[in-house]
Design a binder for these strands. Structure first.
Lengths: 344, 344
DNA sequence: ATGAAAGCGCTAACAT
DNA sequence: ATGTTAGCGCTTTCAT
């Protein structure tokens, strides 16, 4: 029962075309008639039917967003940034969870295309050749978060994952630790997961520390994974001074596992995460981590994608944002009270 | 450049109507022609234009979802459940953040109506008279999460917040504590926040403990609020044995604040939360809390709303799901090791 | 400056 | 069983 442009026209005593003109001020309209039309619109509480518009414009004003799992803290902060920008520019976002399944991702990609979304933001845990093929041949603009994209015409927003991991590892190495482990994430193809791992390896190399594969393990981004991986790792009694975990959520699980094995953090083992999710400050011990400007990444990727959707020139296709090492309690093997540490 | 029903018809040598029939099998079609049509659809990779369909059906296949903030853990788990069901039934969801602002909520409500969503799921921190008016007079089906609704024709899914708070408070009272505080959430109107507060008050009454207003404070659902409220509370040196916090996120902040003031949890003060977000297990100390079946609430509210959207009878408009008290480390004032506690 | 009419892609009577 | 046609609500030529 929402009213139509026809009803507005009737009430204002003009044609539909004129109503359309004041709606979009696409053409000059006599001030007096414009007022009449405006009033009719008010009275009927008219709002244009988006489906009808989409049909004409061949634009849906919808941005599709594929993420691994909206309940993941990194993801939800990112999505909030995206939503904010999209909303302010009159776009809706359509969120889909892939749960890291490549086949689901492919399915969702098709689904979004069938919904005629104007553009797609893709946060994948693994950028596979299948994805690249689709992206390359896609008619709608694409944007990737934290996944490098070599010449496939997609926007990408990320931090320098290699450098960030290198920096975090160096932080431990500078302290003189030699037994620095890493929990990284599974990867088959080049993407942020691999870059972080390589950053770790490179740091070891540059500090002349021999790589010890008993000190590394693969987890799958969630707290549960961190927990289980470390429980397994501690089965074999290896000595460990510090652990760099490729994402905060996993780090939370890691710390719990260490503690349950009688190792306290940071006294026995120092632990650092990656992401700087909001919870990192409140966790006990507060987590040292690589800060990613998550909110900004979300806003930026949405902004750039919408620019592209609207045909504007996107000057920089690959945007690399700065990261920062944030030191908190989990790497403060000290006598000071937590209160002291609080004052960063 | 997606293909249209006309192109399919042309290729298959039939009329658009016939193509439409095989698409929706709305009417019998000769098996042979159906095959030809199907093949043409395949070859052209045809998918029906949703805007065109919406225009005819007057249905958008979109569910609007207004939440306080997607980056809140309770919210993101809820939304994931909603998305799951919606997606499986062919609906898209359109998520909006109100950031708890009533005016923004009202604005979003209008926005969603202008987008012609088929139904609205509303998670508000405060169900105001303005909202009720809109809901009551709304043409599209409504569903509320954790907000009672007296006869306004909306579905509601929640737990028994009063009873849950009563149970949690009793848990402390049964231990013999008399100084049991509560951090509740601001409310102006009847909704889950008030129910939780009343549950606390009733428990005190039933146990003949006098209410002490120095032991309660109001926070605003986030960790930061919990943190600041407790810092303020501890300014005045009052004795406190246990603290019931109206949501987990706030509880995380509360625990940190206590610790920074030299009070350890649970040794000096026991703390319980509300929600049972995934992080509650990993936090240190693991948080005792009121378990809400968040995922199930999300799925259920989506299921029921979609039933209603599709005109089916919704037998039960107000669904109350069971809650559960989950005891973890934050209320275990004991000598046992955390490992022991782990085995619930 | 305004109106009439065609058309966006689809479905649903109404014919045949 | 299939085709023809009108119409969903809007925008946009093309006239006037």
């Amino acid at each position: 029962m929402p009213s139509t442009i026809g009803q507005v026209a009737l009430r204002a005593g003009v044609s539909k075309a004129t109503v359309s003109r004041v709606l979009n001020d696409s053409k000059p309209v006599n001030e007096e008639t414009r007022l009449r039309v405006m009033q009719a619109i008010e009275e009927l509480e008219f709002t244009p039917n988006p489906a009808a518009r989409s049909l004409v414009y061949k634009k849906s004003k919808i941005i599709g967003v594929i993420v691994t799992d909206i309940s993941n803290l990194f993801v939800s902060v990112l999505v909030r940034g995206i939503e904010e920008i999209a909303y302010s520019k009159g776009y809706s976002i359509l969120i889909c969870n892939s749960y890291k399944s490549t086949s689901k991702e492919l399915e969702l990609l098709n689904m979004l295309k069938s919904k005629r979304v104007d553009g797609i933001i893709f946060l994948t845990s693994n950028l596979r050749p299948e994805h690249k093929k689709i992206i390359k041949s896609s008619s709608e603009p694409f944007a990737l978060v934290n996944a490098g994209c070599d010449k496939l015409g997609a926007i990408s927003v990320s931090i320098d994952n290699f450098k960030a991991a290198y920096d975090m590892t160096s932080y431990f190495l500078d302290k003189g630790y030699t037994k620095v482990g890493m929990i990284y994430t599974y990867f088959e193809d080049k993407y942020s997961g691999e870059e972080r791992y390589q950053g770790y390896r490179q740091a070891l190399k540059d500090y002349n520390i021999e790589f010890d594969e008993r000190l590394v393990a693969v987890g799958d981004l969630e707290a549960d994974d961190g927990y289980m991986v470390v429980r397994a790792m501690l089965g074999s009694k290896i000595r460990l001074q510090a652990l760099f975990v490729a994402c905060d959520l996993m780090a939370f699980g890691v710390i719990r596992a260490l503690r349950e094995c009688g190792l306290s953090v940071p006294e026995d083992v120092e632990v650092a995460g990656f992401d700087d999710v909001p919870m990192a400050t409140y966790f006990q011990p507060a987590l040292t981590t690589v800060h990613q400007p998550i909110d900004r990444m979300g806003r930026l990727v949405a902004e750039e994608l919408i620019k592209m959707v609207e045909g504007a020139d996107v000057e920089k296709m690959e945007i690399v944002l700065p990261h920062k090492i944030i030191c908190r309690e989990s790497t403060a093997k000290l006598k000071e009270s937590p209160d002291e540490l609080q004052k960063k």
